[in-house]
């Protein structure tokens, strides 16, 4: 195996069925080792419960409906916060990328705000909103805003000026120029922002829910800690990981769909 194995290669033999399974070998092995370690008593169950215990806890919570409710609440918070923060970030990115005036007016301010870690605002946010829904939404939206804003702006600013000139020469209107040249050109960068934002979205939500919430996955984990239900704690962590993976996969799929022209996404 060479270091540059991940780069496209000419004529590399493909085994599609096996290929899809390869990424799952390591996680599966980890779960297996974990199970063994717990069953043999190498790891005491008070430190780390066996995967089967975690699954059992999950099953119980599923039957009581608590799990679905908490996942749903967290998912809902993440989505709404993401849509609000991402939407505003995208709008500012577009505006500042396309208009000098808008950029002059707002970019410096936004860059200053960007340097405040948004989680540092938690005490203030709790004072403002209490442990209300709006507190979590605000934090998620704020966290998601900057990666989307910065990458949208960067994407638009780095669209090949020669292509823009070409579009103008061929008589594109401003709208067409945006639709056919600027936006597609900025898209790869916007996707980078999207993936960053998704990561920040979960991170923010976990922190916010563990500190100030009365429902959601983070809250479920904190409650479980109070009652020493370590299997539930581990379960919530695993679910976070799963949801994060899900969001990432979704954005990748979207990327493959819209960037099929890009040499990096072309199927051989």
């Amino acid at each position: 195996m060479s270091l540059i194995d991940s780069l496209p290669r000419v004529g590399a033999p493909k085994l599609p069925k096996v290929d899809g399974l390869i990424p799952w070998i390591v996680p599966l092995a980890i779960v297996l080792v974990w199970q063994l370690a717990c069953v043999t008593g190498f790891v005491p169950s008070r430190v780390l419960p066996a995967p089967t215990d975690v699954a059992l806890a999950g099953w119980k919570l599923l039957l009581s409906g608590e799990l679905v409710r908490n996942i749903w609440v967290s998912f809902w918070r993440a989505s709404i916060g993401f849509v609000i923060g991402g939407g505003i970030g995208f709008a500012f990115g577009l505006a500042n990328g396309l208009s000098q005036l808008s950029a002059k007016l707002t970019d410096t301010t936004l860059q200053m705000v960007r340097n405040i870690p948004h989680l540092a605002l938690i005490p203030l946010v709790i004072l403002w909103f209490g442990i209300d829904e709006s507190a979590k939404l605000f934090l998620v939206a704020l966290g998601v805003f900057f990666p989307i804003y910065l990458n949208t702006l960067h994407g638009i600013r780095t669209v090949d000026p020669q292509l823009i000139e070409m579009g103008r020469i061929y008589g594109m209107t401003d709208g067409e120029l945006f639709r056919r040249v600027i936006f597609p050109g900025a898209l790869p960068s916007i996707f980078v922002g999207l993936r960053f934002a998704l990561g920040i979205m979960w991170l923010t939500l976990i922190v916010a829910e563990t500190i100030a919430a009365s429902s959601g996955l983070g809250y479920m984990a904190m409650q479980a800690r109070e009652f020493m239900l370590i299997d539930v704690v581990v379960l919530s962590i695993l679910i976070y990981a799963l949801l994060g993976k899900l969001a990432d996969s979704a954005s990748r799929a979207l990327e493959r769909l819209t960037l099929s022209w890009h040499p990096a996404f072309q199927k051989k």
């Binding site: 070409m166 040249v181 597609p184």
Partner: peptide, 18 residues
């Protein structure tokens, strides 16, 4: 100066202007 995200034919259509 072709649009990388447009197929060859659409790139040529750009030349039709209005």
């Amino acid at each position: 100066r072709l649009l990388p995200w447009a197929r060859v034919l659409s790139n040529v259509e750009v030349g039709l202007g209005r």
